[in-house]
Design a protein around this nucleic acid. Structure first.
Lengths: 335, 335
DNA sequence: CGCACATTTTGAATCGATTCATGAAGGGAT
DNA sequence: ATCCCTTCATGAATCGATTCAAAATGTGCG
C-alpha cells in the first residue's frame, strides 16, 4: 500500500504537517508562496485526505443518513431527492439505507450508523418496536428527524403527512362514487402508515355504512397487490373497489385484475396512495392520494440542521402536511 | 459530548484497553470471567465502537460503494439488491451513490469515496470522461468493478449486458412487425448504454431498409419520453414505432401518446429497455428488452471480492450477459 | 521444588489529520 | 538600536481502536 499522508506532503514541500493542514483548511492563514508549494506537492504526490483521521479528530462525521422503508419505492427516492440539496449545501454527505420494512435490517443499519458517528439521521421507522433503538441513538446525542411518522408523542422533530386524513379522503371518494363494499389492501399492520390509512378509511366506512374488507399483506409492493387480488377473486361476495396502502400495491393489484379479465374501474375500482409518477402512466391511470414528497424531505433536512445548530436547548418541531386526492380513470365509474 | 471510549470501559471493568479490544475482536482469547466483566461494563456504559478510529488503524473502511446513474430507476435498485447479500455476508456495508447522470456529481462522490478509503467500488460510469477519475481511484489501490459497461478495453473487471445486441433485438422485433420507419429515443448520446443500443438498432435498420429517426434526449426518464413525443408529433411524416433507450423513457412516451389520443400499438408501437416491473403494468403492457438485473449486481460483487482477495496478482475478468426480448401488447400490432 | 509450557493480560506504539501554544521573522515607529 | 505588532510556521498533543512483544499467571510433570 502506498498511501500518501500529510507527512509525505510536508516533507516534499519542505514544511511542517501543521502547515499542510492549514493549506487545506485555512488557506488564508498561509503565505501565498508556501501555499502554492504545498499545493504542488499535493498534486505531484496525488495526496488524498484521509477522512477517518479527520473524523476521529472531529468526533463526528459529516454524513447524514436517510433510513427508508424501501428504496425501490419512488416515494422514498423523491423524499431523498428533496433532502439532498440542503444537506449537500451544508457540506454534508448523504447516505441512504434501506430497511426493507424489516426491523432487523433497520437495527443493523442503526448500529453501524452509530458506530460511524453520523452527523444526523432522517428515519422512517419500520414500526413501534424501532422506538427503543431510536431513543438509544438520540440518547447518544445523534440528532434525528422522524420522516412520514405521525406527530405522535415522540420527543423528536418530525415531518409527516396526515395519513388518517389520507385514508378518509380515499374512502370518501369511493363512497361518493357509490361503492358500498370496499377492500383495504396493505400491511403489515404494524407499519404505522398502514394502520393510520386504514383507520381513516374505517372511520368513513363506518359513518357511510360501507362494508370494509381488510386484506393484510406481508409488504407494500407489487407482489403484495397481486396476491391480495388472487385472494379477493376467490370470495363469494366481491368488493367493488379497492383502496391500496400505496401505489406499488395498487399497480400490482391492477395488473392482476387485468390478467384475470376484471375490468377496471367498471367491475372493480382502485385507488392507491403516494401518487408516484408511475400512477399516471398505469394501464388504467391510477387515482391516488398525493403527498408532498420532496417537500417532506426538504423540511426534514431543515429541521435536522436546525436541531444541530441549536444544540442542547432545542425544542422539537412537528410539521404535518395534508395529503390531497387525485382522481383518475381507475375510479372514474359511478355505480 | 459524553462519548464513552474503550478507555472508560477498561477502567470500569478493571482491565487494560488491550483486553477490551480483545473482547470485541477475539473473544476466545479472553478468559470467560474477564470477558463477561468487560461485556457488563460495555452494556452499563452504553459503549459504542468508534468506526473512524478502527478504520484509521485498519487503513481501509468496510464500505462498498455502488455508484449508479439513477437511484429512482428500478433497474439500478435491482442491481443493488442483487449485490447486497454478498457484500453484507462478507462483513461489508453498502452505500449507494446517485450520480444522476451528471459527471460533476459523479466526481464529487468519487472524491468523497476516495477520502473515505472505501473497500471497493461498483460503478456505472456516466460517460467516457469519467475514465480518468476511475483510473485515479484504481491507481490508488481501490478495487473496482464496472457495471453495465461494455467489456471494453478497460483494465478492470466488469459485468455488462450486450447492449448492441439488445438494440438489435429491439429493432429486429419492430422490423419483423412490418415497421419501416422507426424512432429511437434516448440520450444524452455520451452515455455508453445509449450509444450501444442505438448502434445495434442502426445496424439492423440499415440491413432491413428501415428508416431511423433519432431523438436525442437530455436524460433517461419520464420527462424525456414525454418531450420526445411532443417533438415527434409535430413531424410531417411520423414514425410508426418507437424504441426507447429505457423503460422510464418508454413509459413517459406512452403516457404522452395516450394523452394525445394516439393509439398504442395501432398508430404507434413502443418498445422499451430493462423490463422493469412497471413495464408489465403499464397502460399498454410494454414490450421491452430484459436484462438479468440482480444477477448483474451479484456477479459484480463477486468479481469485486475476488479482486480484493487475490490482491496484486489479479487478472481482470469481464462478464457479459445476453439480453432477451419480452414482447407484450405495446408492439402486438402487425402492420 | 523447579522448570517448561500454555493461557491471559498488559501497555506502548501506531494509524493520519487537526489544533494551538509557542516561536521566528519581518516591518514600522520612535 | 530597541520595542511592539503582525504575519507565518512549527511540532507536540490529541482523538480512539488495534496490535504485538513482553510480562504475568497458572498448570503439569519429573
Amino acid at each position: 500500500m502506498t498511501t500518501t499522508s500529510m507527512k509525505d506532503v510536508a516533507r516534499a514541500a519542505g514544511v511542517s504537517v501543521g502547515t499542510v493542514s492549514n493549506v487545506l483548511n485555512r488557506p488564508d492563514a498561509v503565505a501565498e508562496e508556501t501555499r502554492s508549494r504545498v499545493q504542488a506537492a499535493i498534486a505531484e504526490l496525488g495526496y488524498v485526505r484521509n477522512d477517518s483521521a479527520r473524523q476521529l479528530r472531529a468526533g463526528r462525521s459529516r454524513t447524514v443518513a436517510v433510513v427508508v422503508l424501501d428504496v425501490a419505492n419512488p416515494f422514498f427516492t423523491d423524499v431523498v431527492r428533496g433532502a439532498e440539496p440542503l444537506i449537500e449545501s451544508a457540506g454534508g454527505v448523504v447516505t441512504v439505507c434501506d430497511s426493507g420494512e424489516d426491523v432487523r435490517r433497520e437495527r443493523r443499519h442503526l448500529e453501524i450508523l452509530e458506530e460511524q458517528r453520523v452527523l444526523g439521521l432522517l428515519i422512517t421507522p419500520v414500526d413501534d418496536t424501532s422506538a427503543s433503538w431510536i431513543e438509544r441513538l438520540s440518547g447518544h446525542d445523534i440528532p434525528l428527524v422522524l420522516v412520514d411518522r405521525g406527530a405522535g408523542r415522540h420527543p423528536h422533530c418530525s415531518v409527516a403527512v396526515d395519513d388518517v386524513h389520507g385514508g378518509r379522503l380515499a374512502a370518501q371518494h369511493l363512497a361518493d362514487r357509490g361503492h358500498t363494499r370496499i377492500a383495504f389492501v396493505g400491511g403489515p399492520a404494524s407499519i404505522p402508515q398502514v394502520a393510520d390509512r386504514l383507520a381513516g378509511c374505517r372511520e368513513v366506512c363506518d359513518e357511510a355504512g360501507v362494508a370494509l374488507e381488510v386484506f393484510t399483506t406481508a409488504g407494500l409492493n407489487f407482489a403484495a397487490g397481486r396476491e391480495a387480488v388472487e385472494q379477493m377473486l376467490g370470495l363469494a361476495e366481491r368488493p367493488t373497489a379497492m383502496f391500496c396502502a400505496n401505489d406499488l400495491v395498487a399497480l400490482g393489484a391492477l395488473q392482476a385484475l387485468t390478467m384475470h379479465g376484471v375490468k377496471v374501474p367498471q367491475e372493480c375500482a382502485i385507488i392507491g396512495y403516494d401518487d408516484i409518477d408511475f400512477a399516471a402512466a398505469a394501464a388504467v391511470p391510477l387515482s391516488s392520494i398525493r403527498q408532498p414528497r420532496s417537500q417532506l424531505g426538504r423540511t426534514a433536512a431543515q429541521l435536522l440542521f436546525d436541531e444541530i445548530g441549536e444544540g442542547a436547548g432545542h425544542t422539537h418541531r412537528n410539521v404535518v402536511f395534508q395529503p390531497e386526492l387525485v382522481a383518475r380513470a381507475s375510479t372514474s365509474q359511478e355505480l
